[in-house]
Design a protein around this nucleic acid. Structure first.
Length: 824
RNA sequence: GCCGAAGUGGCGGAAUUGGCAGACGCAGUGGACUCAAAAUCCACCGCCCUCAAAAGCGUAUCGGUUCGAGUCCGAUCUUCGGCACCA
């Protein structure tokens, strides 16, 4: 064994061997329990960053640990390879997106391999490969045939910088989540997936996800935004038009004193055309539409309204109330119209006060009497209904039901559940994505590409224009085709799919990555799915994780998979920070993983990133602490080296060690117990590593202080040290394992089990408190009699000082832990 | 505004079920080794007072429950994350 730890040599040696032996290849095996460990696949930007290192280090510990525990572990890696940066590179540097992407993949694959992660590389997928996107397109067609993919003209979010539309989920604070440009609204014909059909299931099944952080579930719940209420039909007095509103407070319909429409509401134009109000209303509408989406939806925006000269008739009491338009009413939620109940809604109250609209109390708090003149605020709580015709006197919750029944019976409305969730806009006016497999024929209309013609290949010979427009539009070879139904000339859809479509099913493809006949074989997917542990950044809490759940549910309904939730357990890792903020080029605080690996080795990099903080928490990068981890591995190297020759060939059993031998023996088994628990129960790798450090410290002390060393005990300690460290630092442990005379890979060994008997202690330290303050400590035989401990405690000189001349009121004895003497 | 998470030494963090606050590591201090330095090994390392010890104080702030609170309850402050005119 070399005297110094040459990480570079060791890491290369073992990476080469693992590759040659295909050490991490897995196949379905019914004899073992399966375990699917998955980390979110990266976008191939060209270089690994620290966030990746953290993500994949965590995943590798889990995968290696589960493997050692006897599971058949699927641990794959691939590339989320479509996306805008490839096109920008093409425009900027004239390099084809495919070349740019594949070069990046090659580099990042090399970097990943230098980290020594236990991937089954035979299962690698890249979403930009025709063998992959063929099936993305195939899945689109299944959605289409099921009525879950449809095209409609809609007001959509348009990013002028990316020259494409964005899903609602991709708009953050009114800006493009990718480039921060203010998003505009445009009316365009676009493809959507009908995720709203699954809103209820996506919401309800969150309850099944006990292995997910509550934070993520709550975020999804809020995003789906289910609200129960009713749809109510009002009638326009002047024209007889039906005006529908959605409300969650249909118990307050008798309190409606006005109506407010969104400026874009179709009735606005109809009701004002040719009237004296037309001009003013148009002015108002224009003014509102000029606002950016950010300003429009800002809560800061002063609420403004304008009477449009028409009235709405309340179906319950026949009363006609004025109709206004308001800048705060959104066309795309509910019906684009709201009823104004100022007495019982905070916002309506302020609005009514501003415009001098009538306020009528229809809910009274029990035992009180609200008076409109004295109200400073709306009353939004429950109470008893008043001024509500036949419903007066009912508790409002009960009245709500009765009113819903009445509406339904009289055909004036019905109960309705509304969602904040919108359908998923998947069209992108971009080149580097999976083409939407649709053909437009003048005779046959919208025609899906027949499955036998898949994939619709992205043409490589295209020209990129600096305008950022999709080159597909200007590629006649791509656009012009023949109609699969009638054979006449037709044109292809030039929009490509949102990359989130590609990443919504990659975890299924990993189960059967080479399949040329189908997206995947159902038996294989049934064997591996669901993912037992999914690991990735919390930034995907809504987007990717909800889309993947949606896909899984649709595929289950298509009988392509058997699970209805894809990810059983989810770990959301924190960010890697430097100097308190996220590493970014603009801040100049980026630490390159490659440099760290070159300088200290992959094992050190992995150790640091796992040791510095628990996985969910943000992690502060610290160069000096990295050195500390490097020192630790060197320490391990030396202590194993000090014993490797002696323990290599010794036989003999441990028997019943005593004294310092016994301490080391106990420490070994304590370490096994704690490390196992820290990994299994909590994923607290930081404390697992610190426990291993303590074992190393213990070995050093033993080596220094014990004259006649018990080699079987040392051997056991050293072997377990290497085994426990193996998932964290896979290269050095492999080398050390070999150095103590083992022939096979440490990663093929069984995870150690602690011996209960080894943990036993003869004596324990008992803390003595007087009035809750620690005054002394004594060492007593384990499980000593309560009364005996109490007497012993009271007789300690230090304790006597505090209890003499005082009345002992109470003594609390916690066996093997503490005595608390309460004196007065 | 609403929802959620967090707040512990100079720093990263630990304390898993209410029972010794500060494990482990970084930084720092001292010692051994060395001609010397690096590396390594050993020891110390919350604050305050002190030559030292003892005492006192101490887990964002204030209050409560308890023999006992970093941990439970109530209020407040700060930071971070998500949602935000959702009818």
């Amino acid at each position: 064994m070399e005297e110094t730890y040459n990480f570079s040599l060791i890491e290369k040696k073992w990476q080469k061997r693992w590759e040659e032996e295909n050490a991490y290849k897995v196949v379905e095996n019914e004899d073992k329990p399966k375990y699917y460990c998955l980390e979110m696949f990266p976008y191939p930007s060209g270089n690994l960053h620290m966030g990746h290192v953290r993500n994949y280090s965590i995943g590798d510990v889990v995968a290696r640990f589960k493997t050692m525990q006897g599971y058949n572990v699927l641990h794959p890696m691939g590339w989320d390879a479509f996306g805008l940066p490839a096109e920008n590179a093409a425009i900027k540097h004239g390099v084809a997106p495919s070349k740019w992407t594949w070069d990046n993949i090659a580099n990042m694959r090399r970097q990943l391999k230098s980290m020594g992660i236990s991937y089954d590389w035979d299962r690698e997928v890249a979403s930009c490969h025709p063998h992959y996107y063929k099936w993305t397109q195939w899945l689109f067609l299944q959605f289409y045939h099921k009525g879950l993919a449809y095209k409609k003209k809609a007001t959509v979010n348009w990013c002028p910088s990316c020259q494409t539309v964005l899903a609602n989920e991709q708009v953050v604070d009114g800006c493009c989540e990718r480039c921060d440009t203010v998003v505009e609204k445009r009316a365009l014909e676009q493809w959507f997936f009908k995720i709203t059909d699954y809103a209820d299931r996506l919401l309800e099944d969150l309850d099944k996800l006990s292995g997910w952080p509550d934070k993520v579930k709550i975020m999804q719940e809020n995003w789906i935004g289910r609200s129960e209420g009713a749809r109510i039909k009002f009638t326009v007095q002047e024209t007889g038009d039906i005006l529908e509103v959605f409300t969650t407070r249909h118990d307050t319909v008798f309190g409606v004193t006005y109506m407010v429409l969104a400026p874009e509401h179709p009735l606005v134009e109809k009701l004002t055309k040719g009237t004296e109000y037309e001009e003013k209303v148009q002015e108002f509408v224009k003014k509102v539409q000029k606002l950016s989406e950010v300003d429009r939806t800002s809560t800061e925006l002063e609420k403004e309204g304008l009477f449009i000269g028409a009235h709405a008739v309340n179906p319950l009491n026949g009363e006609a109330v004025p109709i206004l338009i308001g800048n705060y009413v959104l066309m795309d939620y509910g019906t684009g119209a709201v009823m104004g109940v100022p007495a019982h809604d905070e916002r309506d109250f302020k609005f009514a006060k501003k415009y001098g609209l009538k306020i009528r109390v229809v809910i009274q708090p029990e035992g009180k009497n609200l008076n409109v003149e004295e109200m400073d605020d709306a009353y939004t709580e429950d109470g008893i209904m008043v001024n509500s015709g036949e419903f007066s006197g009912l508790p409002n919750r009960e009245g709500m039901e009765k009113i819903a029944d009445w509406l339904e019976k009289n055909n004036k409305g019905q109960k309705q559940i509304n969602y904040r969730l919108r359908d998923w806009l998947i069209s992108r006016q971009r080149y580097w994505g999976a083409p939407i497999p649709i053909i437009y024929c003048d005779h046959c209309g919208v025609v899906p590409v027949p499955e036998k013609d898949l994939p619709v290949i992205l043409p490589e010979e295209v020209e990129f224009k600096p305008t950022g427009e999709s080159p597909l539009k200007y590629s006649p070879e791509f656009v012009n085709t023949t109609c699969p139904q009638c054979g006449k000339p037709a044109k292809r859809e030039t929009d490509t799919m949102d990359t989130f479509v590609c990443s919504s099913w990659y975890f299924l493809r990993y189960c059967d990555p080479q399949n040329g006949e189908k997206p995947f074989n159902k038996d294989k997917v049934d064997y591996w799915m669901a993912v037992d542990q999914y690991i990735g950044g919390v930034e995907h809490a809504i987007l990717h994780l909800m889309y993947a759940r949606f896909f899984t549910k649709v595929l289950k309904d298509l009988n392509l998979v058997s699970v209805d939730e894809p990810f059983t357990n989810l770990l959301t890792q924190g960010m890697v920070l430097k100097d308190g903020s996220k590493m970014s080029k603009s801040k100049g605080n980026v630490v390159s993983p490659e440099e760290i690996i070159n300088k200290y080795g992959a094992d050190t990099a992995r150790m640091f990133i796992l040791f510095a903080a628990p996985p969910e928490r943000d992690l502060e990068w610290n160069d000096q602490a990295v050195e500390g981890c490097y020192r630790f591995l060197n320490r391990v190297w030396r202590i194993v080296g000090a014993y490797s020759d002696q323990i290599k060939n010794i036989q003999g059993t441990i028997g019943k060690p005593d004294g310092a031998d016994r301490e080391l023996y106990r420490l070994t088994h304590q370490t096994i117990k704690k490390v196992t628990e820290d990994i299994t129960e909590r994923f607290n790798f930081n404390t697992a590593i610190s426990t291993i450090m303590e074992l190393v410290n213990g070995l050093y002390h033993y080596k220094d202080k014990v004259q006649e060393q018990n080699l079987p005990v040392v051997k056991e300690a050293i072997e377990n040290l290497i085994l426990l460290l193996a998932p964290f630092a896979p290269h050095i442990t492999e080398e050390l394992w070999q150095s103590i005379g083992k022939d096979s890979s440490v990663h093929k060994e069984k995870w150690p089990q602690y011996i209960q008997e080894a943990l036993a202690v003869d004596e324990v330290t008992v803390v003595i408190q007087v009035n809750g303050k620690v005054r002394d400590k004594i060492s007593v035989p384990v499980d000593m009699d309560k009364e005996q401990v109490e007497e012993l405690a009271k007789s300690q000189p230090k304790v006597e000082e505090y209890i003499k001349d005082k009345e002992i009121k109470k003594v609390v004895v916690i066996p093997n832990k503490l005595v608390n003497i309460v004196v007065g």
